[in-house]
Simulated assay, not measured.
Amino acid sequence: MKRLSQFGRRLLGVGAMLLAGAAHAADYPTQPISLVVPFAAGGMTDVLARQLAKTMQKALGQPVVVENRLGAGGIIGAERVARSKPDGYTLMVTTTAHVVNPSITKQLPYDTERDFAPVALLASTPNVLVVNPAVPAHNLPELVAYAKRTGGLSYGSSGTGGTTHLSGALLAGRTGAPLLHVPYKGTAAAVNDLLGGQIQASFVDALTATKYIQAGKLTPIAVTTRTRNAMLPNVPTVAEQGVPGYETEIWIGFYAPAGTPPAIVNRLNELAVSSMNEPAFRNTLLQQGTTPGQMGVPEFRSFVSAEIRKWGSIVKDAHIEAQ
């Protein structure tokens, strides 16, 4: 009887916690919400986060503030969220770098799977290999030949460990082209130096790259996905230009700290999917080669887990050692 009594008390305690969580979720939100973006303003991640913040603020009736917390390839911003209370008031929008970092960083200050609750996929897009028009190349074989002939080609990325960095590392490993990686704190900074000629090439998300390609300010060489992009139909893939099996993609995810009540996570997922698929914004994304997300919470959680393992294999294939 004593054991049953102890079990009963534990059961009542769990029930009380669940009821408290449900009550908290029902009242949510009662204060401003911080949306942490671990990269600089102006890039794809920041654009999507601000669209999401606008939707959330309107639907939830509380201020939603985008907080750009830069540094360490997204790790500094992610750590801030991982250490926050799981109450739905500190959230994160970040790139594929989040699922790559476990493979390239020896000692992360958090566990990527255990310390975060995946909420929603916001959008996905190919990376586009683009060059400054001064570079005498219009396709991948010409670019590889130019890099080998001149002894090296500098390419910028949005930060060490992100897909824009790894896309170049994987290409260098598969082709033998001497590519010099130049990391920046965000896409906007890399593109700015590419336009100015300080670097020669970059892997840039299609959302950002399309407008510069259409304006003739950057020359597209290849898209990194398995198939061509509908908005860049004349730009061949890396794979079809002599690098079979090559494929990388950038996607932006929405996360909460682990332990956030499921009711809050589900509500945030609904708002995220609605925000990315708002007709005018969805049309803008599609016109710029970007696909808005539509995953539910369980599907996105499984997707994140699979991506951690996929990028681990890419890092291994690219012979990149964890630092």
Rank of each mutant, 00 (worst) to 15 (best):
P141Y: 08
E142Q: 15
Y146D: 11
T150E: 12
G152R: 12
Y155V: 10
Y155K: 09
S157H: 14
G159S: 03
T160M: 09
G162K: 02
G162C: 09
G162N: 06
L166V: 04
L166E: 06
S167G: 15
G168W: 11
L170G: 08
L171V: 02
A172P: 05
T175Q: 07
P178F: 06
L179C: 07
P183K: 13
T187A: 10
T187P: 01
T187H: 00
A189D: 15
N192T: 03
Q198E: 13
S202R: 06
V204D: 00
D205S: 04
A206M: 01
A206C: 12
T210H: 03
L218W: 11
T219G: 10
T219F: 11
V223M: 01
V223Q: 00
V223F: 06
T227K: 14
T227G: 09
N229K: 03
N229R: 01
M231Y: 04
M231R: 06
E240Q: 14
T248E: 15
E249V: 08
E249R: 13
W251K: 00
W251T: 01
I252R: 04
T260M: 06
T260N: 10
I264R: 01
R267M: 13
L268A: 11
L268G: 07
E270P: 00
S274R: 02
M276V: 01
M276I: 01
N277H: 07
N277I: 02
F281E: 02
F281K: 08
N283P: 03
T284R: 13
L285C: 13
L286A: 15
L286F: 04
L286D: 09
Q288L: 04
